[in-house]
């Protein structure tokens, strides 16, 4: 749709733009409502999505409780170190699953209902998924943060919470885009689940979620320093440390030092890149 902007027709095109906006809002709202109705009536995904990270937090926290106090930089308690990793990992796994409902809609033919409808923009399908997953991730994260607090691992201050939210949203947007892209490219849900299965844990272990880079053998340190999860974990860890200075160096990577701003910038670029990368897929499948 071309939008010409000439003074004579601007009144009309403004009306038109408003209508377009209202219709997109109606589509997105209806599609999002469907996802939340599903969640409300079948809450097991949410329950499992909250239980699993809690178990991680308690078990892994206990596993390394007696680690020597000089293991971690600054000698902080392991549970406090772990919290940020679990928050990011939870949001990441949740977003990685975003493509599954779309894949099932494809397989059952429900997607055809959406595709024969005169949607203003087929991106509405993507936007609805992003809203749904982002809400879910934030809900999960707050439960974990609450649990971490009650285990005595502290709670970030107001700006810290804001930083946690921003970081998580950037990460969730990017990973959701990736998962939806996969849902349109892969032949079926078996393949999608296989990819999720293979990607999930290795990305966790090859990040700074469980141990700092200084603790890793050099080759793993390299991987962790390149892993996008690390760029989300470190700002959140900084938010927990209380000394909130995004200008300070958060990652001592083998290739150099990355500040808090650097982390967020890299994440943003990755997310934007993923959205741009899946656009042709959506256009091919969704026009």
């Amino acid at each position: 749709m071309s939008k010409t902007f000439s003074p004579s027709s601007s009144g009309f095109s403004l009306e038109n733009n408003k209508l377009e906006f209202l219709e997109i809002r109606q589509e997105v709202f209806a599609l999002t409502r469907r996802l939340f109705l599903q969640l409300y009536r079948r809450p097991s995904t949410l329950v499992a999505g909250i239980l699993q990270p809690l178990i991680w937090l308690v078990l892994f926290g206990a596993l390394f409780e007696n680690a020597p106090s000089n293991l971690l930089p600054g000698g902080i308690v392991y549970g406090k170190f772990l919290g940020a990793g679990i928050i990011v990992f939870t949001a990441f796994s949740g977003a990685l699953n975003a493509g599954l409902p779309v894949m099932f809609d494809r397989e059952f033919g429900f997607l055809n209902r959406l595709l024969v409808a005169p949607l203003r923009s087929r991106s509405s399908i993507v936007i609805a998924s992003v809203i749904y997953i982002a809400t879910l991730s934030i809900l999960q994260s707050f439960v974990i943060m609450g649990a971490a607090f009650s285990l005595g691992y502290g709670f970030p201050n107001f700006y810290g919470v804001l930083l946690v939210l921003i970081t998580l949203l950037i990460l969730v947007f990017g990973v959701t885009a990736l998962s939806l892209g996969l849902a349109f490219v892969l032949p079926g849900h078996i393949e999608l689940i296989a990819v999720i299965f293979v990607a999930n844990l290795p990305l966790l272990f090859a990040s700074t979620a469980l141990v700092p880079i200084s603790f890793m053998p050099p080759w793993l340190g390299w991987l962790a320093a390149l892993n996008p999860l690390t760029f989300a974990i470190e700002p959140i860890r900084a938010a927990y440390s209380g000394s909130l200075d995004l200008g300070s160096v958060l990652i001592h990577a083998p290739y150099g030092e990355v500040t808090g701003y650097g982390c967020l910038l890299i994440l943003t670029i990755l997310t934007a890149g993923l959205f741009i990368a899946i656009r042709p897929l959506l256009n091919r499948k969704l026009t």
Binding site: Q26, A30, R113, P118
Partner: peptide, 15 residues
Amino acid sequence: LTGRELLQLHGDLYH
């Protein structure tokens, strides 16, 4: 979804 909810979804997708 209930039948009514499906119809509502359709109505919204057709604006």
